[in-house]
Amino acid sequence: MKVALVGIGKIAVDQHVPAITNSPDWELAATVSRHGSVDGVEAFTDLGELLETRPEIRVISLCLPPVPRFAYAMQALQAGRHVMLEKPPGATLAECHALEAAAKAAGLTLYATWHSREADMVPAAKAWLADKVLKKLTVTWKEDVRRWHPGQDWIWEPGGLGVFDPGINALSIVTEILPHDIHVTDAVLEVPENRQTPIAAQIGFHHPQGADVSATFDWRQDGDQIWEIEAITDGGTLRLSGGGAQMEIDGQPSGEAAALDGEYPRLYDRMSALVQKGGSDVDLRPMTLVADAYTLGRRDTVAAFHEDG
């Protein structure tokens, strides 16, 4: 299938282009971007022009920041194209519901992707937790924003999510592996005095079986990056680390440690299957938790953040 990639930034170049190029199911047929391009691929600066001149491209994959994404997605759906959304699927939940309704009405595929769910050990963690009683779950997601999001000022503006841009990855795993849904009960959001979105957050959750569930997100991490989820149950303790690439049960490794380079290929495999069977996949639970954290969260002003330190 021919696919057009819209938004040629860091995530597109690092993840989407290799995943498409190495897939037997896909051909990168065009790009749309004001600033970026891919060697050997026809480049457009306007989505409308691509939709008009390349009707054989049936799938549009959007890698734009969240705020402008809705307009592009709706334009593609209204032109009869299937749409794949980078996480988070939009700037607001209402936007996502509108896109889902439009795709359903047109009989098109809409896929709200969560790449961290495709980490190697996430399915194994889900299977292990399925018959356990959860007592405590702790999420610790700490990374260096300068390392992973250099120069991406949009992330600090309204709709950019701030530390929830990586934090939503953790929540996408949690909502996938837990047998029961959780919801936010309290949150503290640490917002730099010169920014609009938080640089750190602490969140508490309600669990229907009474488990103690909490998350700590921080973008000021020096040294080793930490992406961990620990679940204490009646049957032992599970620990996911490396963003879901490694798993331990009671301190013992379970399976081989894996790299995260399989996440995006699996997303495109899933999109291929959805298009072929005429289905959609729009799970908004991770985004709902983030929205509720913003609604309930107390804002604490912290020191200014500057890209150059």
Rank of each mutant, 00 (worst) to 15 (best):
A103S: 11
I168S: 11
D234H: 09
A303W: 07
P166G: 03
V275K: 08
T233P: 04
T216A: 13
H206D: 15
E248H: 15
I203K: 04
G167R: 03
W148K: 00
T92C: 08
G236D: 06
H207E: 13
R69Q: 14
V41F: 04
K10F: 12
V139Y: 04
D261E: 13
I168E: 07
A125E: 04
T21M: 01
V275W: 09
L238K: 09
G159S: 00
E307D: 15
L238M: 15
I173G: 05
V290E: 00
L289A: 10
W148L: 09
T140V: 15
S172E: 03
C96A: 14
R239K: 12
V174S: 03
A273M: 11
Q75E: 12
G309L: 08
K10E: 13
I177T: 05
G235F: 08
A91P: 02
K142C: 08
D14A: 14
V184L: 04
D218S: 15
G251S: 05
K136Q: 14
D212A: 15
I226L: 08
L77D: 07
V275H: 07
G160F: 01
D281T: 09
A170I: 00
W227M: 15
Y111D: 06
V302P: 03
E307P: 06
A273R: 14
A12V: 02
T301Q: 10
T295F: 07
G160A: 09
A91N: 06
R54D: 09
F217S: 04
H35W: 06
I57H: 06
A170H: 02
A273H: 12
K136P: 03
V17G: 05
L47F: 07
H183P: 06
E228R: 12
W26G: 00
T233F: 10
D283E: 09
H115Q: 13
L129R: 02
L178P: 04
L85W: 00
D46G: 09
M247C: 13
A106D: 00
E157T: 08
L296P: 01
G90Q: 02
V282F: 00
L99N: 01
S272N: 11
V32E: 04
W227S: 11
S61E: 11
V145L: 10
L137I: 06
G151N: 10
E228S: 13
P208A: 03
S280Y: 06
I177R: 05
W128H: 05
G204M: 13
A258K: 13
L77T: 04
E118Q: 15
G90A: 12
W26I: 06
T113N: 13
Y111G: 07
E193Q: 14
F164T: 01
I60N: 06
A12H: 00
T216N: 10
A119E: 03
V302H: 06
I182N: 07
A125V: 03
Q15V: 09
R117F: 09
A304E: 05
S272E: 08
P166C: 07
V290H: 04
S172F: 01
W219T: 10
G151E: 09
K136N: 12
E95V: 00
I226P: 01
Q78L: 10
G255N: 14
L238D: 05
S280W: 04
L62H: 05
K104N: 09
P55A: 06
Q202M: 10
P179Y: 06
A291D: 15
P286Q: 04
L284G: 07
A201H: 01
